[in-house]
C-alpha cells in the first residue's frame, strides 16, 4: 500500500464577475493523480499558477478540494470529520516557503516548536520541553536559541525552526512547499542536506513542491511536472530528465540557465497548440508517463 495515493483530485475556484456575467471557474487543480511510496522523495514541479501548492494544501485540507480522493495509508482523508482530520495531520505536516511570514513573530521559537504538542495534548510540560530541546538539536539549532524570537534568526535558521515544528509530532509525511526557494544557494544546500539527513534518520517521506528543476533532479526519486492544473509528465527522476517528452517539460528544462557560457543555448519555446491539454497520461517506458 502506498503511503499517499491521490486520485482525481480537483480544486475549482469560482470567481464571481458581477451581477449579470456568469461566474468564471479557475481549474487550479484539474484531475491530478499520483502515489507516493513510503520513504520516497517525490518532487512536484511547475511554475507559478500551475497548481502545485494548491495540490499540497488540498492533501492536508488546508484548502478544501472540490472532488477526488486522498488516501493516506489507504484511508480517504477527505471523508474525515474535523477531529479525525486533526488527528491525521499529526502524520502529515507542512513546511512553508516563507520563513519570514510562517512563524508567529510574537512567540518565542521554543513555544512555536512546542505548540503542536500542546494542541494535540501530548506529554507533560516537562516532557514537552525535553522534546523541543531534542528537536532543536535534531535540526542543528542551539538550546539557548529556545527563548529567542523569530526576528533574531536568519532565513536558513528560521526554516530549521519550521522543520523542527513540522517534526514535533513525529509525522510520516512532510509536504515541503517551496521550503528552500527563498534561501540563498549556500543556505539552501545546508537545509536540503538537513532534510535528506532527517529523511534517513526518521524514515520520513517527502512531497517536495518546487519550481527549481535543478534542485529536484538532484534530490528527488520521482518527479511530477504540473502545467495549468494538470500533471503533464511523471516518472523516475533519471528517466524523466534523460528523456523529457511533454512539450512543456522540454520548454521548462531548456529555460534553465546553463553554467557553461560556451554551451549553445537551445531554447525551446512552448507552443500551447502543439499538444492536447486534455490528453491522459500514457506510459512511455518503465516508470515514465507523459500526457502526449
Amino acid at each position: 500500500m502506498s503511503l499517499l495515493d491521490v486520485r482525481h483530485l480537483v480544486k475549482h475556484f469560482v470567481r464571481r464577475q458581477g451581477l449579470w456575467r456568469p461566474p468564471s471557474v479557475v481549474k487550479a487543480v484539474d484531475d491530478v493523480s499520483f502515489t507516493i511510496e513510503e520513504g520516497e522523495m517525490f518532487g512536484l514541479v511547475g511554475e507559478s499558477g500551475s497548481g502545485k501548492s494548491t495540490t499540497g494544501r488540498c492533501i492536508l485540507r488546508l484548502i478544501e478540494p472540490s472532488s477526488g480522493e486522498v488516501l493516506f495509508r489507504g484511508d480517504d482523508v477527505l471523508r474525515y470529520s474535523r477531529s479525525q482530520m486533526r488527528e491525521a495531520r499529526r502524520h502529515m505536516q507542512i513546511v512553508f516557503q516563507d520563513p519570514y511570514s510562517s512563524l508567529d513573530p510574537r512567540m518565542r521559537v521554543g513555544d512555536i516548536v512546542e505548540e503542536p504538542l500542546v494542541i494535540h495534548r501530548l506529554g507533560t510540560k516537562a516532557e514537552r520541553r525535553t522534546r523541543v530541546a531534542e528537536l532543536f538539536s535534531l535540526v542543528g539549532l542551539e538550546p539557548d536559541h529556545l527563548r529567542r524570537y523569530p526576528h533574531e534568526f536568519s532565513g536558513g535558521q528560521r526554516q530549521r525552526i519550521g522543520i523542527a515544528r513540522a517534526l514535533a509530532l513525529n509525522p510520516a509525511l512532510i509536504i515541503a512547499d517551496e521550503a528552500v526557494s527563498a534561501l540563498d544557494v549556500s543556505i539552501q544546500a545546508q537545509v536540503v542536506t538537513l532534510m535528506m539527513d532527517l529523511k534517513e534518520r526518521l524514515k520520513l517521506t517527502y512531497l517536495f513542491i518546487a519550481h527549481d528543476l535543478r534542485l529536484v533532479e538532484h534530490i528527488c526519486t520521482r518527479v511530477a511536472v504540473m502545467y495549468l492544473g494538470r500533471i503533464v509528465e511523471l516518472g523516475d527522476t533519471r528517466a524523466l530528465f534523460a528523456n523529457p517528452t511533454h512539450p512543456y517539460t522540454r520548454a521548462l528544462l531548456s529555460a534553465i540557465p546553463v553554467l557553461d557560457p560556451d554551451t549553445p543555448r537551445q531554447r525551446i519555446e512552448l507552443d500551447p497548440s502543439s499538444f492536447d491539454r486534455e490528453a491522459p497520461l500514457r506510459q512511455l517506458g518503465a516508470g515514465h508517463w507523459a500526457a502526449v
Binding site: 544557494v185 549556500s186 539552501q188 544546500a189 536540503v192 527549481d212 535543478r214 534542485l215 533532479e217 538532484h218 534530490i219 553554467l259 557553461d260 557560457p261 560556451d262
Partner: peptide, 22 residues
C-alpha cells in the same frame, strides 16, 4: 566569466559554485 566558472580561485567562489544543485 569562463575563468571564474571553470577555475575559481577563491574558496568562497568555489563553495558558492559547489552549492548549486547538480
Amino acid at each position: 566569466v569562463r575563468q571564474i566558472l571553470r577555475a575559481p580561485a577563491h574558496d568562497y567562489t568555489r563553495n558558492l559554485l559547489a552549492s548549486i544543485p547538480g
